[in-house]
Amino acid sequence: MQHPLESARTLEIQAIDLEGQTLRVGIRHGSSDHPPLVIFNGIGANLELLAPFIDELQDVSVIIFDVPGVGGSPAPQLPYRFSTLATLTDKLLSRLGFDGPVDALGVSWGGALAQQFAQMHPVRCRRLVLAATSPGVIMVPSKLSVFAQLMVPRRYSDPAYLAEIGGDIYGGAYRRNPELLEEHRRHIQAPKGHGYFYQLLAMWGWSSLPWLRTLPQTTLVIHGDDDPIVPLINAEILAARIRHATLHVIDDGHLFLVSRAKEVAVTVHSFLCGDLVEPEIQMEDRSLEYEAQ
């Protein structure tokens, strides 16, 4: 059943069964002139949270789904790895009739899944957008206080707790505008069963650093300059290690896809449609500079 959010009006919601795992999937049909965009959401995040950003993507077709154990997707019986979800995504696209190449966008935890999908399915994945994410466990970590608050999903079920810690963990506009936190609270759904902890386990021991240079996709790395969860230097590492990548820094925090949806959607749309300058030369000197440090 579709979540009663006005901002999700452009998404067609359906339940898809894939080998015993039901996924709640949102589809926004756009122009056939561009490959569809698959969006991988952050930890514990149901698909409605990115509806404002999706609404701003103009004519791009979008596929987004609740990860097992999140939103409307039931939790699986056993934990999973990112490789499992990458394979599940490929099967989902085929089931939905998307047999050609797609673009992928991953946010935070979903950015790790997007990297895994791009690595396992280089023909399927044409372009890659990595937002507010890192190369995995081998990263420059957040402050211990922020890390501890992320280890439990309490912010999804306790409105008072979210109001207390939201500005400190999300940063940027969420520090300055309490109304954003209230809007965020109205849109979230508490993770189901062990879903949140399965997402944490998927991240355990995972790192893309050994194979980042093998990614063939032209990649846009977007990051906020006030991100307490994933410090900006992690985006710089991604952009330096991926061969065909460019870095775009936003004056905001971890949830800039929501707080600055329209501005970021314009940048992403331009990148996906090939209107931005190709990043190979732009990032070459920066990569060498980073390695020399």
Results as ranks from 00 to 15, higher is better:
His34Pro: 03
Gln199Met: 09
Ile188Lys: 04
His184Arg: 11
Pro228Ile: 01
Ile169Tyr: 02
Val249Lys: 11
Leu49Pro: 07
Leu255Gln: 03
Thr10Phe: 08
Leu57Gly: 05
Gly72Cys: 07
Val258Gly: 11
Arg243Thr: 09
Gln77Tyr: 00
Leu212Asp: 12
Ser270Asn: 15
Arg241Asp: 05
Asp251Ala: 10
Ser73Met: 05
Leu128Ala: 14
Val230Arg: 02
Val266Phe: 12
Arg175Ile: 01
Leu200Arg: 09
Gly71Asn: 07
Glu48Asp: 14
Val137Leu: 13
Gly253Val: 00
Leu93Val: 07
Gly172Ile: 06
Glu284Lys: 15
Ala132Gln: 15
Ile229Gly: 04
Leu57Met: 14
Tyr170Ile: 05
Gly71His: 07
Ala114Met: 12
Ala148Pro: 03
Leu201His: 12
Ile242His: 11
Leu130Trp: 11
Gly44Lys: 10
Gly110Ser: 11
Val268Thr: 13
Glu48Val: 08
Tyr80Lys: 10
Met1Phe: 04
Pro79Leu: 01
Asp99Trp: 02
Pro74Arg: 04
Gln21Trp: 00
His248Ala: 00
Gln282Asp: 15
Val102Ala: 10
Ile188Val: 08
Leu276Trp: 10
Ser61Glu: 06
Leu150Val: 04
Ile43Cys: 09
Tyr80Met: 08
Pro153Asn: 00
Gly26Gln: 02
Ser208Phe: 01
Glu48Cys: 11
Thr87Lys: 09
Gly274Asn: 04
Pro135Ile: 12
Thr87Val: 05
Arg154Phe: 00
Lys91Asp: 11
Gly97Trp: 06
Gly171Tyr: 06
Gln2Leu: 05
Glu289Ser: 15
Glu278Arg: 14
Asn234Phe: 02
His121Lys: 07
Ser142Glu: 11
Leu162Ala: 03
Glu284Arg: 15
Cys273Ser: 15
Pro231Thr: 02
Ser31Phe: 06
Ala265Lys: 08
Met283Val: 11
Ser270Cys: 13
His194Arg: 02
Glu291Cys: 15
His269Gly: 06
Gly42Ser: 10
Glu263His: 13
Gln21Lys: 00
Glu289Ile: 14
Pro52Thr: 07
Val38Ile: 13
Ala8Arg: 04
Cys125Gln: 07
Pro228Asn: 01
Met203Leu: 04
Val266Asn: 13
Ala104Asp: 08
Leu50Gly: 05
Asp275Glu: 14
Thr214Cys: 10
